[in-house]
Design a protein around this nucleic acid. Sequence first.
DNA 1: AAAGAAATTGACACGATGTCAATGACATAA
DNA 2: TTATGTCATTGACATCGTGTCAATTTCTTT
Lengths: 197, 197
Amino acid sequence: MKRQQKAQQTRQKIVAAAYDVFLQNGFQKTTITQIIKQANIGYGTAYVYFQNKDEIFIDIMEDVMQKFYAIAELPFAPKTKGEAVRLIHHQVRLFLELAVQEKALLQVMKEAIGASSIAAKTWKQIRERFIARIAEDVAYSQKNGLAKRHLQPKLVARGWFYANEMYMWELTEPSVPFSLEEAARHLTEMYTNGVYS
Amino acid sequence: MKRQQKAQQTRQKIVAAAYDVFLQNGFQKTTITQIIKQANIGYGTAYVYFQNKDEIFIDIMEDVMQKFYAIAELPFAPKTKGEAVRLIHHQVRLFLELAVQEKALLQVMKEAIGASSIAAKTWKQIRERFIARIAEDVAYSQKNGLAKRHLQPKLVARGWFYANEMYMWELTEPSVPFSLEEAARHLTEMYTNGVYS
DNA sequence: AAAGAAATTGACACGATGTCAATGACATAA
DNA sequence: TTATGTCATTGACATCGTGTCAATTTCTTT
């Protein structure tokens, strides 16, 4: 059984080395040569475990995705508008805080999403998962008479997540002209006033 | 004076050829070789007029930018909330319609913005121009008692534009799960209910 | 310990980039 | 008209990154 272990270990060496190099050089400037050098393995070895640079990055990306999913899946069952506002504000904060916490990796992710179609696809999955979940929450609120009924949950969810996502990306930039707290407050307020009644 | 004319003509040949090739192959797959071949010029010539592929694309990008700017600068001086809603809805429609109209180029632009830092910078300029202009409109509405005064115009403008922008990108995709009109209506309604009083 | 299987390797072919010395084409002055 | 300098054009070249694959090393099994 030592054979497979060694192989897995090599795979891990690649991912770990890639993580370092990606954070150091960004997505596009990173080369396979840099990664295998950092991992102390031969050039061809990288291609045994991954198709290309993009695939290696996806591996890294999926770790953070889990953290995002956890926030997306938080329970949401408010009885009043006030409670809904509080829950939403809390969720927005968690979302933006996670972005700031993982700032370095998210910067690389943004670059990767732009440059690699596989990375783009992966991110789109996260997004649609969020939107689907938010749409559920909106529908719930509508059923309970908390939210305006004539709006389509899916379209509301989409617009709402888009605003959040863009604020998130903005927060990963070196200098931002606003604070996380301000962003969370404005997002929540605009949204809840616009959709809840 | 024929000297400069010829040079300008060559430059234009490059841009025109690049436009074709970019639309055909997308941003990343396009190579200098393809462009100079389409333009019927020598390889080195492209580098006389542009630093690289990115610079050529910026030239093309700036044409469409003008159309966006025109929409951003539309006059906004409503006397009532109803009038504001109508103006905003109209502007959103124009914005999204322009996106659909220029769909092919916008798809390439999206790719370029992701892959090229120069293109990203250029797009950011458009965005900030929009946000600055919207912030003015919000401030105007607040002064005239149409909009909630405790919100910061710049943050409101940012969130609002982000939602619009993402819907715009979505509308350039091959198949979209909603109509332009639905998107415009929901955007406008969520926004005006959230910010106007 | 021999044979087979699995893991590792780096040299190679290929394609794209950006540079630059050489060439070609035009304008101006004699 | 010619000659001379200037500007425009060119493609061969050096460089770099990619992905492949035949050869080699390392382990496992008999």
